[in-house]
Amino acid sequence: MITPQLLISGVIFGLSIGSIYFLLAIGLSLCFGLMRIISLDQLLYYSIGANITYSVNLLSGNMWWGVLAGMAVAALASFAVERVIFLRIYARDPTFSMITSFGILIGGIGIIKYFWGVVPRPVEVPTLLQVSIFGTEVPVYRLIVIAIAAVVYIGIWLFLHRTIVGKAIRAAIEDVEHVEGLGINVSRLFTLTFIIAGALSGLAGGLHAPLIMVDPTMGLEMLAFVFMVVIIGGLGSIKGTLVSALVIGQVVSLGSIIYAPMAQMAPFVIMLLVLLIKPTGLYGSPVFKR
């Protein structure tokens, strides 16, 4: 029943959807690792990115400008939210930030509904080219998405390991107080991380827009999958996020080839199994540091 062609296109599809999950989940994971907040509003920046991409694509006819504009607006929005709201709640419990960010997410969906309406809208794919991989026709756009995610992963890795700011961020993930004691402006570090996370979420939204329909509640639909990616990988771990995003992408994609409803259920079962064995996820740190 499963032909090699189907398998290859399924794997490519899974990789591209996994890339989107990765771009989205990395924001949540970074925010938790550094600031100890559960930032559900990343899904708002994802919706913003997708909606801006739709509008700019309609105006200029070029989707890539839309993606860039979406990233920029998402980064601006996350900057504003961080300065106005999150600044006041860093010192409090992580679940506290979860409620607050859920409020931001729901409120933001209301704003998007106000500007763009509730009707789902398609975004045209920038390139309809297909390439042949082992005799299977694969859309180039999906390969581009995978490539962008790979570049982002390498970029984040280089940023965290090769620049002084990135090293400060990694040190702050381990112990905020010591980094503060070294005279590094932790508050600015937090803002920077939050903006990077927001921009990456916006990028994810923009890249995902041509593959699905753009509507205000698209963030809520992604919520469960992104959560499962972050939980399986372990909160605060970038490597874990990458691994689990790729796994979940394949499970969703190949699962839907075998039995369609399984695509939604299987990640949840995997998550339960992982939590059964390791309650903090694959790469999560066992102790809860503050």
Binding site: T95, L235, Q264, M265, L275, L276, T280, G281
Partner: peptide
């Protein structure tokens, strides 16, 4: 027994995932 072993932040996230799964379960599966 599976859920209450979790830390409170994981607990909140796992429960939200459960709600979405139940939604899919009743709507599609």
């Amino acid at each position: 027994p599976l859920f209450v072993r979790l830390r409170s932040d994981y607990f909140a996230m796992v429960n939200l995932a459960l709600a979405v799964i139940v939604f899919y379960l009743t709507q599609k599966v």
